[in-house]
Every structure is written in C-alpha cells, then in structure tokens.
Design a protein around this nucleic acid. Structure first.
Lengths: 224, 224
DNA sequence: TCTTTTATTTAGGTATACCTAAATATTTCC
DNA sequence: GGAAATATTTAGGTATACCTAAATAAAAGA
C-alpha cells in the first residue's frame, strides 16, 4: 500500500491547477478549505484527494496546515494552464468564439489535448504569449513571462495604467468588462476612489465610468 | 432502485458508439462479445454496463441474445459520430494534422465538445458531408447521406469503382493506404483476384499494386 | 489561560466502471 | 438427442472520487 500510482485523471489535473491558482509560483501552502471552495468540493473529499496526490509526490502535505506543489506537481499544473490558455486563444482567433464563452469550453478541452495537438495549436497561433484575457501563456518548457502587475483596486487616484489582464473565470464578470470596454492593453486612468471600498471612477477607452470594487480586484494593470 | 439515471459519461458514449458501429442503422442485435472485443473490455463488464444502459432506456437488452439501440441511444451515438468526424476533418483542414493521426485525437475530443463548439466547427468547415477518410458526417439533425457502397474485396475482377471510404480506426492501416495512394474519390480498377482470400491486383492513382484481403475489406467503394 | 469558533481529518457510505473466477445458458456437432 | 464447445451472466472484488456526520486539532477571543 501507499504506492506511487500514476495519476492522469481529470480530477488530478483540476486539483493541481486549483492549487497553482491559489499559490502561484510562491512556496506558500494552500489550505484544504481554500481548495475545497475553489473546486466546489467538500473539505473531507479534498483531504482524501490531497493524501493521494501526496503519495504520488505531486504535492507536499502538511496535515492541518495545507499543501504545496512539488516540482512535478507544479510542472503538471503549468502544463494544464498552458493548454487552457492556448485553447482559449485558439477558440477566439480561429473559431471566433466570444470572450465570455471561451473559458467554459477550455475548462473541458484542456484535459483532452495531446502533446501533439497542443503544439499544433501553438504553431497555428504563432507561439503566442498572452491569452484573450491578457493572461500569460507558459511556453512549452513551462516558463512564464514575469510581469509587474497590480490590482486596479490598489492604484492611487489620478494615476495612469495599462490594463494587463482581466480575470476570466466568470462569464458574467467578463460581460461586465466587455460592456465597459475594459480589455487588455487599453489605457486606464483612475480619476477618483470612493472611500471604504466604494466604486472607482475611471476613464478607459475614452469613456468615464464607475467600476465596483469587487470588479476592480479582478483587473490587473501595469502602472505607468 | 432500477431508476432511470442520466448517463453522460465517456464510457456511455463509447458503448453507444461501439454498438452503433456494429449494427449501423439496422435493427440487428449486437452481441456482448462483439461489444467487448470492439471496446477492449471484458465480457462480464460489458454485461453489467448493458444492464445500466437498458435501465436508462438507451438500449434494449435481450439477455443471452444481445442489445440494440433505442431511438434515444441511436441519436446519442450518431451525435458522437458526428462530433468524431467533424473533429477529424477540422484537425486535418485547419491544423494540418496527418491522415493517420486524427482518429486518435478525435477519439478523445469527441467527448469534450459542447453543442456550441460543435456548431462553430461545423460552420468553419462549411457544413461538410464527409470526413477525411470518406465517412459521411451526420448533419445536425442526425441524418446521414445514404450511399450504395461495397467492400473492395467484394468487387469482381475487371471492374471499375471509386474509393468511397477507408476505415480509419487503425493508424498502421492508414499508413498502408497512404503509401499505396488509396484515398477517397480515387478511381480504382480491380485487375485480378487471387483465389482463396489472396491479394487483389488493382490499379489506383495510375499505379498497379497488390492489396491484401484484410486491407481490401477495410476499403469501401462505389461500383461504376 | 481557557473557552469558543473554525478548520481539518477520520469514519463510514455511495456511484461508476472496471476485473477474474465460477456458474449457467445457448449453440454446435456427432 | 446429448455431449462438447462457446457465449453470457452472476458473484465477489478493486480503484477512483465523491458525499455527510462525527471527532479532533488549531486559532481566536474573552
């Protein structure tokens, strides 16, 4: 027992991706509850799965504390992330799918790509570096372009910035951004910040508008 | 118990597709062993699964005799077949994937397409009617173009025909056809048939060559 | 510090889909 | 018709990945 099984399941990939999303390239631990919430799975189920992932040396499990990805686990997570973002961009560019539909499709397709198909799509796209939401696409070796980004909500009033990325998980939020013409590479100026977590008054794409705090936390910018 | 559960699994889709491949549009029964062999699963496992599919009203199960698809089961099978063939053609046309690679990819991707993506691909391809192996692609309603085809092995010597379809499951066999330039829509003439299941001497694409009987059974033609 | 709250894990159970070995039904052949 | 061969099903078991309820550990607050 406690043998090191090879885990190729969709579940395994979803856990690794979820943990990576929580901890990024840091060596922080992701907590059981955070993982449970992000995957929509009960905490006891998560505990059980984390033990299996630890046996397969994909995560390091520190009981009652959390897990962090091993090198192998991180590499698998980055691979899925690459596939997810390549697929999003491909669906958008080749098949003209909407900005707010592609995430949902990619969530399934990322688990169905072979190595071969991944690289064909990468070639078709010309080895792209960013997906349609502005998220960096890891290269075939797993390297990610380092960026210096802040949440829009953290920018001071009267500051200029460039939209780097909008978080693309939620179709409703993406429609919100679309309506307000908030897209990667657009210049954005924070005009005013209401106190105590209120809206931000900004100018973007020539229009002055208000953005809720929750939305502003989902927009990454490069400050100028 | 014995409730009518909704079955959306990859396994379910593979069984329905497999049964359809065995029986086509006829009302014949597929036997347990034939299904087991075609899916590479043990016969007892197949029996168990057929009972579940019968409970979900996707097949009609006649114990010790076999199963046949219900209308619902056939419709699901044809949908998967449509997706499989659309994906094959798309990979070939858009991503320039080889004739003998696309089946393997489609085998996975067919289970990962949404309705929306299926129809985007269909549009991109211009509502195609045949896949790269010459197999007819069912339309969105599930209708399949009727054809009048024979196996090449059934054609009399000194007869002319047009290659309609090469069976595309096996990459090795497809390479064999590729080498011999046997593609859909090519004219093929059977020059001689060796007795007792020997090779066929044919002319195709201007070249005279021999085709093994097993291969000739995997080539469908329209007799002229 | 000690109690309460929160987070995590253990215990026990479910569904899906597969397996082998053994039993039983069906078909084939003499 | 009956024995042998073949096909199918039953019985019992495994692995994956999920669940709820209960127990326990850790963190927070008085």
């Amino acid at each position: 027992m406690t043998k090191k099984v090879i885990r190729n399941s969709v579940s395994t990939e979803d856990y690794l991706k979820g943990i990576y999303r929580l901890t990024g390239e840091t060596d922080e631990f992701a907590t059981t509850n955070a993982i449970a919430e992000s995957l929509g799975i009960s905490a006891p189920s998560v505990t059980g799965m984390l033990k299996k992932l630890a046996q397969s040396r994909l995560v390091q499990h520190s009981p009652y504390h959390g897990v962090r990805l091993t090198a192998a686990g991180r590499s698998r997570a980055v691979k899925i992330l690459r596939r997810h973002r390549l697929v999003e961009l491909f669906l958008h560019k080749c098949l003209r799918m909407n900005w707010d539909e592609i995430h949902q499709e990619a969530e399934v397709l990322e688990h169905a790509l072979s190595e071969r198909l991944e690289s064909r799509i990468d070639e078709w796209l010309g080895h792209p570096r960013f997906d349609p939401h502005g998220a960096p696409i890891p290269d075939a070796a797993g390297n990610i372009i380092p960026r210096n980004v802040l949440k829009l909500s953290e920018i001071e009033a009267r500051c200029d910035a460039i939209v780097a990325q909008v978080m693309g998980q939620d179709a409703e939020l993406l429609s919100y951004f679309k309506e307000r013409r908030i897209f990667p590479n657009r210049r954005i100026t924070v005009l005013e910040k209401e106190k105590f977590g209120g809206s931000l008054k900004v100018r973007v794409s020539g229009k002055i508008q208000f953005i809720g705090l929750r939305a502003a936390q989902q927009i990454l910018v490069e400050q100028l």
